[in-house]
C-alpha cells in the first residue's frame, strides 16, 4: 500500500489519530478516568497490579491468538488446552514428579495439543473453527477423564508464586510474563520477515501460496505456539488457585477472542497489531475490575463487555459510512 505510506509521511500525527489503536487507547484512558472518579480510594497502584491477576491468564493468550487470527485461522480449543495442561501438571505432581518437571510437561502438553490442531487444520483442510470446536470438547474431556470428580490439591507453596498469587513481589510475576511475551510477540509480528508473512497469508491465502509462501507451515507453527501459550495460561491459573482442576478456564476462549477483536484484529485475517491487543486486554481487565469493585453484579458486567465489543466494532463501520456520505454529498453538490 504505497499510497498509505505516502500519506503517513505527510501527516503522521493525523494518520495516527485515525488508527484503531488510538481509538481504543482513548477508551482505555476513559476507563481509567471513570474508575478514578467512581472509586478514587480504591483505584490505587498496588490494587492496579493486584487486579491484573484476575485477567493476566486470558491476556497472555490474546497474543498468540492475535497472530493466529491474522494468519486466517482461529483456535477455540485454547481454554480446554489450558485446563488439560493444568490437570496433567497436577497428575504428574501427584505421581511423585518434581513440580519443575511437571510444569515442563504441562507446557509440552499444550504445545503438542496446539500442534495436533495445526496438523489437522493444515493437512486435512478442514476449517479451523470446526476442528478446534471438536478439539475443545476432546481436550476438556481428557482433563475430566484424568481427574474425574477430584482435584489435585496441596501443590507446593513455591509453585503458587508463579501465578503471582499473593506473592510479595510488587508487580505480579504473571504480569511480567505478559509484558515480556507482548514485547516478543510484537517484535515477531511487526519486525520480522515471519511477521510479514503472517499478514500476507491472512490477506490472501491463494496469492501467498502462488508466491511460494509456505502457508501451512506458518499456520502450523502459530497453532503450536498458541497451544504452548494456552498451556502456560493453564499452568498460571492452576498455580493461582493452588489446585489442578479439570473445570478451570471455562469460557476463556471467547474472552480471548473478544479481546482480540476489540484490539482491532480482523476476524477474517490480515489485519491487527499487538499493541492494539495489549491495550484491549488492559481495557477489558480494568473495566471488569472497576465494575466489580463497585459491586456491579457479574451478569451486568457481561452485558457491559458485550456492549463495548459491539460499539467497538460499529465505530469503524459508522465512521466509514459517515465519511462516504460526506464525500457523496460533496461530490453531488
Amino acid at each position: 500500500m504505497p499510497n498509505e505510506r505516502e500519506k503517513k509521511k505527510r501527516l503522521p500525527l493525523a494518520d495516527m489519530l485515525k488508527t484503531w489503536e488510538f481509538t481504543i487507547f482513548m477508551l482505555l484512558i476513559a476507563v481509567f478516568v471513570i474508575n478514578l472518579i467512581l472509586s478514587p480510594d480504591l483505584f490505587r497502584v498496588a490494587n492496579l497490579f493486584d487486579a491484573t491477576l484476575t485477567f493476566t491468564e486470558k491476556s497472555i493468550l490474546t497474543l498468540p491468538m492475535a497472530l493466529l487470527i491474522i494468519s486466517g485461522v482461529i483456535d477455540i480449543s485454547v481454554a480446554s488446552i489450558s485446563a488439560m495442561s493444568g490437570v496433567i501438571l497436577g497428575v504428574c505432581y501427584k505421581a511423585g514428579m518434581a513440580i519443575g518437571y511437571a510444569t515442563v510437561i504441562g507446557l509440552a502438553v499444550g504445545l503438542s495439543a496446539g500442534l495436533l490442531n495445526g496438523v489437522i487444520i493444515t493437512r486435512l483442510k478442514i476449517p479451523s473453527i470446526v476442528v478446534t470446536l471438536a478439539m475443545m470438547l476432546f481436550y476438556r474431556g481428557v482433563g475430566y477423564i484424568l481427574l474425574g470428580d477430584t482435584a489435585v490439591r496441596d501443590l507446593p507453596q513455591r509453585f503458587g508464586l508463579l501465578g503471582g498469587a499473593y506473592s510479595s513481589t510488587f508487580i505480579p510475576i504473571q504480569f511480567m510474563i505478559f509484558i515480556l511475551l507482548a514485547v516478543i510477540f510484537g517484535f515477531l509480528l511487526h519486525r520480522t520477515r515471519f511477521g510479514r508473512l503472517i499478514y500476507i497469508v491472512g490477506n490472501n491465502e491463494n496469492t501467498a501460496r502462488y508466491s511460494g509462501v509456505r502457508v501451512d507451515r506458518i499456520r502450523l507453527i502459530l497453532c503450536g505456539v498458541t497451544g504452548l501459550i494456552a498451556g502456560l495460561s493453564g499452568i498460571l491459573l492452576t498455580s493461582r488457585i493452588g489446585s489442578a482442576r479439570p473445570d478451570i478456564a471455562q469460557g476463556n476462549e471467547m474472552a480471548v477472542i473478544t479481546i482480540c477483536l476489540l484490539g482491532g484484529v480482523y476476524i477474517f485475517g490480515g489485519k491487527g497489531s499487538i499493541i492494539g491487543v495489549v491495550i484491549a486486554a488492559l481495557m477489558i481487565g480494568y473495566v471488569h475490575y472497576g465494575l466489580s469493585i463497585l459491586n456491579v453484579q457479574e451478569q451486568v458486567i457481561r452485558i457491559f463487555t458485550g456492549g463495548l465489543l459491539i460499539i467497538a466494532l460499529l465505530i469503524p463501520t459508522i465512521a466509514s459510512r459517515f465519511r462516504a456520505s460526506v464525500k457523496h454529498r460533496r461530490g453531488g453538490s
Binding site: 488508527t19 478514587p40 511487526h190 519486525r191 499493541i275
Partner: peptide, 29 residues
C-alpha cells in the same frame, strides 16, 4: 511503526499518572 512506540510511551505515562494518584493514602477505611 513510530505510532506503536508513541503508544508505548503513552501507556507508561498513564501508569505513571496513576502512580501519582496512588500516592494519596486511603481515607476512612
Amino acid at each position: 511503526m513510530k505510532k506503536s512506540i508513541v503508544l508505548c510511551v503513552c501507556v507508561v505515562l498513564l501508569f505513571g499518572a496513576s502512580l501519582l494518584f496512588a500516592g494519596t493514602p486511603p481515607k476512612g477505611e
